[in-house]
């Protein structure tokens, strides 16, 4: 169906700040790509440029090879779902969905058929005559999605669509949206600052920082093999240890681990689930806090220099505050100068 190409796109804001810095990405047909990053990373600006609400200072945006860089939003074959859903409160659900179809001068029977079909698709069959303000937050977000889908855009743009919903609803809706997206087979660009959303929904994740790309990969790869310390720290829980390598041994305070890289400073990244803990006195670290989640436990550990580490354990009951433990990482990755220099699998 449709391919989105973003090439060397830069956006300068008045005052000279670079919101997006020569960003390139190709979204394949039917693919869902997540732009993930902290606020201010340029992900929303990038999405708005694809939607036509911002104009790039440089670069090219194309859909199926057609240059749309300077096309106004009403001419673009893109459909955007806004964070605040932005439904038109003076219209009922049917009119919200029919507005774009009416602009395209479709016959009334055709409009009715399409609107009813899309309402079924998002699970709101029969809601056409409801007032928008009578709907719950999740229903409103579904109407917003339907409003975009009913026009059959080539590219679907989602701007933090679940940000205003509570956790429970968010989880349900992202499954639904992913489901609908796959059924319709629509090429989708999705902006979020929630890593759970990105990891559970995306075919690929673009981790953004300061307007640039840190890593573009499948979710499992981004999680298991982060290419920069920023990605390592941003996705999931990660122990990041700054230390030094000498003679093949990484050292930070009382903690040391063999690391086959050249001597010098390094950042060691260890997932809590990849850090084995064994009780030992005095031990390399002290247990600060034990949290029992039922299925597993999480230990907060302190090195003598007050560096805090987290480790996942299967039997938290055997640990107490103040106990000494030794630490054995099963898998680590190491970084120097913002690039990965070492990686070991569990």
């Amino acid at each position: 169906m449709s391919v989105l190409t973003i090439k060397d796109v830069t956006k300068l804001f008045p005052g000279g700040t670079k919101a997006v810095d020569s960003f390139s990405l190709e979204v394949a047909d039917g693919e869902l790509v997540c732009l993930l990053g902290p606020s201010g990373s340029g992900k929303s600006t990038l999405l708005r440029m694809v939607g036509g609400f911002e104009t790039p200072s440089a670069g090219l945006i194309a859909i199926d090879g057609e240059d749309i860089t300077r096309m106004p939003p009403e001419k673009r074959p893109t459909g955007m779902v806004f964070q605040s859903h932005a439904l038109w409160t003076h219209m009922d659900v049917f009119k919200n969905l029919a507005f774009g179809l009416k602009l395209r001068r479709l016959p009334a029977t055709e409009i009715k058929r399409k609107v009813e079909a899309v309402l079924e698709l998002v699970g709101l069959g029969g809601y056409g005559s409801r007032r928008v303000t009578q709907l719950s937050g999740g229903q409103q977000q579904r109407v917003a999605l339907a409003r975009s889908l009913v026009l059959e855009p080539k590219i679907l743009l989602l701007d933090e669509p679940f940000a205003s919903l509570d956790q429970h609803l968010r989880e349900r809706l992202r499954e639904e949206v992913r489901d609908i997206q796959q059924r319709v087979g629509i090429t989708t660009l999705f902006v979020t600052h929630g890593q759970d959303e990105a990891l559970s929904m995306a075919d690929r994740i673009v981790v953004m920082r300061d307007g640039g790309t840190e890593q573009i990969d499948r979710p499992d790869v981004v999680y298991r093999n982060p290419q920069t310390p920023f990605v390592a720290g941003f996705i999931g829980t990660m122990n990041l240890l700054e230390g030094t390598v000498a003679n093949g041994i990484f050292t930070r305070a009382s903690f040391s681990h063999p690391l086959a890289v050249a001597d010098g400073p390094a950042t060691l990244a260890i997932r809590p689930e990849a850090l084995d803990v064994t009780p030992a006195e005095p031990g390399a670290a002290k247990v600060h806090r034990v949290t029992d989640y039922g299925t597993h436990g999480l230990l907060d550990l302190d090195l003598p220099d007050d560096t805090r580490l987290k480790a996942m354990v299967s039997h938290p009951a055997q640990y107490r505050h103040g106990m000494g433990v030794n630490l054995t990482p099963r898998a680590v990755s190491a970084y120097r100068n913002n690039a990965q220099i070492f990686r070991s699998e569990a």
Partner: peptide
């Protein structure tokens, strides 16, 4: 809400 206006531009107005 500006986003309401943008949403309308987005659907072709």
């Amino acid at each position: 809400d500006r986003r309401m206006e943008e949403a309308a531009r987005d659907v072709g107005a």
